[in-house]
């Protein structure tokens, strides 16, 4: 038996919005510790990894390991039927784990919607992601990162991210011209969520596809801050932390032909 009741049901709605563009089908791996999902996009350029810890649910029950194969587009359609303030409960039985039950309770508990989502067998390989000491770690407002990606898309399909002592610079060059945005590290005691924090081991310069970064910024509503981790010749990590877990996006760097 698997049962997970999420008081902040709106979080699940936002989470689905943040992965559905990148991944079509994925397994939700449910265990005692929580719900995890790892999937690559169709072109195997990006990887999404998300975790919702069991402590974030009330109650959470998972007797044994479950792998629930879900078409994310279908799940997203059903989750659109839940109100933003609804409590969402997910359930799957031992015997008939061929469907996932979802119930949506409104805050007054006088309207309850119940839905069943058919599950599917998904043969997905699970990659192990090693702990990495990154050359540069940047914590910045997520809305600012989204704006930079959106603005530079006007100029080019790719962006070069340069990190040096106290500056992160995003540069795009295209047929119509070029553009760059520099952010200096700042600290705001009153509003720490608005500051730009740069931790640097050594200077980094890497180029990435803006199309994928734009997709990653679908995670913006999940957190006021985004964490960017970069190392030379390594995938970029873009992370949005939530109270009950995280969503991490990995993107392989563009490399010279």
């Amino acid at each position: 038996m698997f049962e997970a009741r999420l008081i902040q049901g709106g979080l699940l709605k936002k989470l689905l919005e943040s992965v559905k563009e990148l991944v079509t089908d994925a397994n939700f791996d449910c265990s005692e510790s929580g719900i995890a999902l790892q999937a690559m996009d169709n072109s195997h350029v990006a990887l999404v990894s998300l975790l919702l810890r069991s402590e974030g649910f009330d109650p959470y029950r998972c007797d044994r390991g479950f792998s629930l194969g879900v078409n994310l587009n279908s799940l997203n359609k059903i989750l659109k039927c839940a109100g933003n303030d609804d409590i969402i409960t997910l359930r799957a039985d031992d015997n008939s784990a061929d469907s996932l039950s979802l119930s949506f309770e409104n805050p007054n508990n006088d309207r309850i919607g119940e839905y069943e989502l058919k599950l599917m067998d998904i043969d997905q390989e699970h990659l192990s992601i090693p702990e990495t000491d990154y050359d540069a770690t940047i914590i910045m407002p997520s809305a600012e990162f989204q704006r930079i990606c959106r603005d530079l898309t006007v100029v080019s399909e790719s962006v070069t991210i340069d990190v040096s002592k106290d500056t992160i610079k995003f540069t795009a060059e295209g047929e119509l011209g070029s553009g760059n945005i520099k952010l200096k590290s700042t600290s705001s005691i009153d509003k720490p969520e608005e500051s730009v924090n740069i931790e640097l081991g050594q200077d980094v310069s890497l180029q990435f596809s803006l199309k994928y970064l734009m997709n990653f910024t679908k995670g913006t509503p999940l957190s006021e801050q985004v964490i960017l981790c970069l190392s030379e010749k390594m995938p970029l990590l873009v992370e949005y932390k939530m109270d009950i877990g995280y969503i991490r996006y990995y993107l392989a760097p563009k490399i010279g032909d």
Partner: peptide, 14 residues
């Protein structure tokens, strides 16, 4: 010319 590298070559298969 640039091309986008594959992500799965950076991570280990179990």
């Amino acid at each position: 010319l640039y091309y986008q590298d594959a992500i799965d070559k950076y991570f280990e298969r179990p």
